[in-house]
Design a binder for these strands. Structure first.
Lengths: 125, 125
DNA sequence: GCAATAGGGGAAAAACTTATCCCTATATGA
DNA sequence: TCATATAGGGATAAGTTTTTCCCCTATTGC
C-alpha cells in the first residue's frame, strides 16, 4: 500500500472531516450504502465511472475510519455486504446538506464548472 | 496552467459540489474569508501550512467558480481583497454543518485517523 | 477445459495536486 | 543601497490518488 510522506494537518475540525471524506468516490459510497446498495458489485454498477479497484480501496478506508462495516458471508460465490455504522449514519445529514445545496444550485454549478473546463472562448469580465 | 485530461463527472449533485470544493484548502479559504480575513497575506497567515502558491491558485479557482470576488486596489504596495459572492455565501451553512459534525466527533475522528496513519502496531480484529 | 460470477489485490502508469525556488514591481525605512 | 512588505507568476519537483492491466480463489454451467 502507499505510505504517506506528509503528516496530515489535524488542526481544526475541517481538517478532520477532510481526512475521512477525501477520496473521489467516498461521499457517494456512503450515500449509496445508506440507500441500501450494500454489495460491492451493486456499488460498482451505481458508480460505473470509478474503477473497481478504487472502490475497494476507498471502502476499506471507510471501514478503517469506522464509518462502514463489512460483513462477509461464507458462501460461494462470495457475498459481501457493507453497512453504515452508527458513526457513519451521523454523517448522512451532512452529506444530505451537501447534496441539497448542489441540487438547489445545479444549473449555476454546471455553468461555472463548464465555463472553466471547456477552455475560455468568451471571456466576460 | 495545468490542463485536465479527464472529463469531470457531472452526473449527480454530489459530483457538482465536489468540483468546486475539492482542493486541500478551499473550504478553509471560504470559511476565513467569511470570517473577515480578506487579504491574501492575512489568509496565508491563517493557513500557514499551505504554500503561498497554492492559496493563490485555489483562490483563483474559487473566483472562477463565482464563489468569491477579487477586488484590486490600485495602490502601492498592492492591495487585494477577497469577498464572498452571494452564491458563495449560500455555501457557508453547508461548511458550518461540516465543521459542526467534526467538532462533535473530534475525539473519535482523531482516533480513527491516527490509528490508520501511525502504522498498525496493534491490529485488533 | 473455458467462461461467467462474485470477491479481492499487486504493479506500474497516468493523472492530478501541492511544494519549492526564483522571478517581477514599488514604496518605505534603515 | 539593501531589506521588507505587498501581490503575483513560471518552471520544476515531489507527493498523492486514480486508473489500467493482470492475476488469484471457488463454483456453476456449457
Amino acid at each position: 500500500m502507499y505510505e504517506r510522506k506528509t503528516i496530515p494537518n489535524l488542526n481544526c475540525g475541517l481538517d478532520l472531516i477532510g481526512e475521512v471524506l477525501y477520496g473521489k468516490w467516498k461521499i457517494r459510497l456512503l450515500w449509496f450504502i445508506n440507500e441500501g446498495y450494500k454489495r460491492p458489485s451493486e456499488l460498482q454498477r451505481k458508480i460505473p465511472d470509478a474503477s473497481r479497484r478504487v472502490l475497494n480501496i476507498q471502502l476499506k478506508e471507510l471501514e478503517e475510519h469506522e464509518l462502514v462495516t463489512r460483513k462477509i458471508y461464507p458462501v460461494v460465490p462470495p457475498k459481501v455486504e457493507y453497512s453504515l455504522t452508527e458513526f457513519g449514519k451521523t454523517l448522512i445529514p451532512v452529506i444530505a446538506a451537501l447534496g441539497q445545496w448542489s441540487d438547489e444550485h445545479e444549473t449555476r454549478l454546471r455553468d461555472v464548472i463548464l465555463k472553466q473546463t471547456v477552455s475560455s472562448d468568451s471571456d466576460n469580465t
